[in-house]
Structures are given as C-alpha cells and as structure tokens.
Amino acid sequence: MITPGYSLHGAAGVRGGLDPGLLLRPEGRSVRTTTQILAAISSGDPAGGSLPDRLCSDCAENLDLTGAGMTLMNDAGPQAVVGASGPLASRLEELQLDLGEGPGLDASRANRTVAHDDLSSAALTRWPGFAPAAVAAGVWAVTALPLQVGGIKLGSLCMYRASSGRLDDAQATTAHAYASAAVVVLLHLQDQMWPVGALHPELAEPVAYRAVIHQATGFLSVTASVGMAEALLLMRAHAFAAELPLLNIARDILSGRLRLHPEESEE
C-alpha cells in the first residue's frame, strides 16, 4: 500500500489535523484525508485502471462529480492525460492539452486552485475554446488544483461538475486531499523505477498516446522552419479551426497529407 511518506507542503489532511468525524457534509459523507484516499485506491480493484485512473474515479464518486482528470506536465506545458474517471473527463483533459488552455493549465501555471462556478458565462472570455466545449458536454462548473512539489510543477487535477456552484468547505478540503494524494501517487510511481531514467508504465502509456504530436512538432519544425514551440502553436491553431483533435492533425502532418506554414495561421 502507498503511504504519504513523501512530505507535502500545504497538504490538507496529511498531518492529521482534521478529525473526519467533525466535518460532515450535509449528505453525511465525511471529509476524506490523503491517507484514506491512498488506502482506498491502493486496495481497490486493479481492474479499475492505473493508480491515477482509480484516484480520479474515487475522487469523482466521493465529491459527486461528473468526472475528474489528471494531467502530467513539464516546463514546456502539459504533456499527457495520465488519469481520468471516465470518457468525459478524459475528453475534457485532452481538449485542454489540444487547445493549450483551460483550468488545469491555469492552476498549474499559477500554482493555485482555479475554480469557475458557471462556465456558461464569464468563462467564455477566459477559455474561449475550452468553456463552450465543456458546457456542450454538460459540465457547468470546474475546480482545478495544481500538483506541485516544492518549485517543481507536475501537473493538475481537474474536477468537473454537472451543476453550477462552488464546492462547500468540506468538499474543498477533500479536493485538496485528492490533489495531495495525486502527488503522492506520481512520486510513488516514479519511486518504483530503477534505473531512474524511464517513466513508470502507468505514466509512459498515456505519454506515448500523444507521442505522434511530438513527432509532428519535430517534423513541422523542419518543413516550416520554425522552433518547436511555434510548430506546436501552428498545429493547435489548425486543429482548433478545423475542429479536429490535435492527434488527427499530427498524423496528417507526418503522413504528408497536411502541410502547414507559419503564414497560414494568420489568415
């Protein structure tokens, strides 16, 4: 079983400061601590997917969410959706990566919780690509938490809800416990790796899912004579305009079916 042996600054529940019995939600469901979450997902049915998947499913169930998703990032930005409670969460996480915008990205960039209680309104200007798609998928509110260790940004955990409104205090506390547990899971997986150069299969597999995008980025950097970051922006712009997943655009670029040039993005 995984224990929160890794120190987590600001991790709610890790230091046992909360008495689960004192904080009851109106429905009578108690606040969960990081330790409880880790115990639940590590003793759960392995058929429930990878550890990050199980964490997202447990989170969605416990907080009455439409879905929860977890994204892994590096300095260049988000790189893979490593966990999701189901297809909806998976799609919204992938969408954030495709667009390069969304609550998860904002949360990890700013290292703070990003919440929006009504995606149909103000969020349209904040996330012009993500918000309408979320609303169309039946998601009206979102809370995103950063996953970070010291100064190192590891990604984000997004919680999607079918009705507008905020998380109450007890739910917010539990949400933070899930984010702490998510960091522990990521470090735990990395801790299993020896030699240390590789990613754990539970993380490598989702990263490999988007490998074609990195290959197409490298490809486009040659054919369009641009840097990697600009090549990715070109592909994103085209995917957004064409309303297609970035993966499809990447495949078309690699196969030569689609040629992109810097000026095309400015039309």
């Binding site: 120190s7 892994l72 590096n74 790189q79 470090l187 490809f219």
Partner: peptide, 29 residues
C-alpha cells in the same frame, strides 16, 4: 526525497518528449 523524485519524473518526461521530437525532425529531414 520527494523533490528528488519529482525531478526524476520531470527529466524522464522531458527526455520522452525530446526523443519523439527528434524522430519527427529525422522523418522530415
């Protein structure tokens, strides 16, 4: 220890991305 693991995770991810980008550069060139 947790800082060290987080760094290892980042490096492993960076390398993965870099290798895929390099494949793309070679495919094109």
């Amino acid at each position: 220890q947790s800082g060290l693991l987080a760094e290892q995770l980042q490096t492993a991810l960076d390398n993965r991305v870099l290798i895929e980008q390099a494949k793309g550069v070679l495919i094109a060139s």
